[in-house]
């Protein structure tokens, strides 16, 4: 330890730089606008009660409200009643900054809807990738057929094409089919994963032939073999691939940005955050950082719980 102090010094400096934006993001999501502007309040802010001006403005009492409240304040003038009602509104509209920020994050924009969309899109992409890639991988690894080399060659060639790079022609094709601004547009381009096919094929190569022969002796067809014999053996590899796929598509911003325009019902979490930023005025830093925290948290928490699996999954492409 003493001999290694300089190593720790360097690594800790690195840690500070790496952590800084996370620290700031979470810290701003706790603070009131005033504290953010003045840069005060440490990490959690002072959490003094603050008054939400919009909430008070919404409760500005009308004549009817004042008339209705007249019997609660007997013998007072209209002006006094009005002031009393305003004071009540201010009490009810005051809250801790952290509550304000997070409640605004969920009420100013349909954040729950965005999160749900994120889940729908990432999960459907992953499931479709498996449905498409697994049978092909099995055939390429274990069946002898005319044209196998050509198909495998095609898979290897497709590994060279990053889907983001061909976004423009894909967008044109989807637009021609009238599919922009649909879930299909978000999901379909990712259904074929050349990488997933390649990876599963490499994995199936290591599965002993005896297992498949035994299944055939039992009278199983090839389709049944894929789903009832090969799928269970492939669970560890699939889990790693799931992490790889889900992380990539939860965080993806480029593709949703291209095919979803304006229709908030289809926004994925990054698009939602982007829109929040677009129409945010100065006082909305807190709620915006709360939104960012909400979007980043699920993956980070999952990562902290299952680090080994995540690192394995994300660096999967390194295991070729």
């Amino acid at each position: 330890m003493t001999r290694d102090w300089w190593k720790h010094l360097i690594l800790i400096l690195g840690v500070i730089v790496v952590i800084a934006p996370f620290y700031m993001m979470v810290s701003y999501s706790f603070k009131s606008p005033g504290e953010i502007d003045r840069g005060e309040g440490g990490f959690f802010g002072r959490q003094e009660l603050m008054i939400d001006p919009r909430c008070v403005a919404l409760r500005d009492p009308s004549r009817d409200d004042i008339a209705a409240a007249a019997d609660r304040f007997p013998g007072q003038s209209e002006r006094q009643i009005r002031d009393a009602l305003m004071a009540e509104a201010e009490v009810e509209c005051s809250m801790h900054p952290v509550v304000f920020n997070y409640s605004k994050a969920f009420t100013e924009a349909p954040l729950l809807r965005y999160l749900l969309n994120g889940v729908i899109v990432t999960v459907s992409i992953f499931l479709l990738q498996v449905v498409v890639a697994l049978p092909a991988a099995y055939a390429l690894a274990k069946l002898k057929f005319w044209g196998r080399e050509a198909v495998f060659g095609l898979v290897l060639f497709c590994l060279l094409i990053p889907v983001h790079a061909i976004a423009l022609p894909l967008y044109i094709l989807l637009a021609k089919l009238g599919l922009t601004n649909t879930y299909a547009a978000l999901v379909v381009p990712w259904t074929i994963s050349a990488f997933g096919t390649f990876l599963m094929r490499q994995f199936f190569m290591t599965v002993p032939d005896d297992l498949i022969d035994a299944a055939r002796m039992d009278g199983m067809g090839e389709f049944a073999i894929v789903w009832r014999v090969m799928l269970p053996t492939a669970i560890p590899a699939l889990l790693a691939f799931a992490i790889f796929s889900i992380v990539a598509h939860w965080n993806d911003y480029f593709w949703p940005r291209i095919v979803v325009t304006g229709n908030r019902d289809l926004f994925t979490p990054p698009l939602g955050l982007r829109e929040f930023k677009g129409d945010g005025d100065g006082s909305f830093f807190g709620p915006m950082m709360a939104t960012a925290t909400v979007i980043v948290t699920p993956l980070i928490v999952a990562f902290l719980i299952a680090q080994k699996r995540f690192i394995e999954g994300i660096t999967l492409s390194g295991m070729k």
């Binding site: 911003y253 990054p270 955050l273 960012a292 980070i300 680090q307 995540f310």
Partner: peptide, 18 residues
């Protein structure tokens, strides 16, 4: 290792705004 890997996991757009 865990800390240095955090930015890889985090949504880049959110971190860009941070």
């Amino acid at each position: 290792k865990t800390i240095y890997f955090l930015p890889v996991m985090a949504t880049l757009l959110a971190m860009a705004i941070a």
